[in-house]
Write a protein that binds this DNA or RNA. Sequence first.
DNA 1: AGGGTGATTAGG
DNA 2: CTAATCACCCTC
Length: 200
Amino acid sequence: MSGSPDLSVLAGDVLDVAPRLLGAHLTHAGVTVRLTEVEAYAGQDDPGSHAFRGPTARNAVMFGPAGHLYAYLIYGMHVCANVVTGTPGTASAVLLRAGEVVEGLDVARGRRPGASDRDLARGPARLCRALAIGLEQGGADLATGPVLLLLATDHGGPVESGPRVGLRQAAEHPWRYWLAGEPTVSAYRPAAPLRRRPAG
DNA sequence: AGGGTGATTAGG
DNA sequence: CTAATCACCCTC
């Protein structure tokens, strides 16, 4: 009877939940994206996760119930969005890396001047830009909005997996999942090596 | 190939 | 307080 979609599946293990988000629809402010690429972050067990070192003010929402939005600012200018998974107390989440704009194409184009349609939401910060997701949306309940998640009953194609993008820690885990053959999947970019201190 | 940008974090 | 890091994007 509820008007909200059932997101209870998100309370499961993040490695199980992440691929199931592929094909899901994410809607905000007049634009809907079909997710084509995601990455799993396994909380305090995962050196690549923001929650690895325990709760802080920034990552607090990850320790809460599943189905909420964890949004953060990176490199001083870009916002990235995650879906919190697992049970309260665990801090796992899924980074939304890329999607295909399936609704509100003109609105999305206006938010991403100069970008091709393929690139509108191709990359985690681009996806947030196309959907106008900012830090204000952090903590939002994805079942009730304003950012809404509608799970897919079907992926719509085979899922592939490989190493996560841009991580220096725990880069060996194949916890990035994408829909095979989708042009909106972002290119794999290994982490840049640390700039070495001047040698003595 | 390199630069922009500022919050977040650990450490003194 | 300081200094290092950062789940990225754009332009050249």
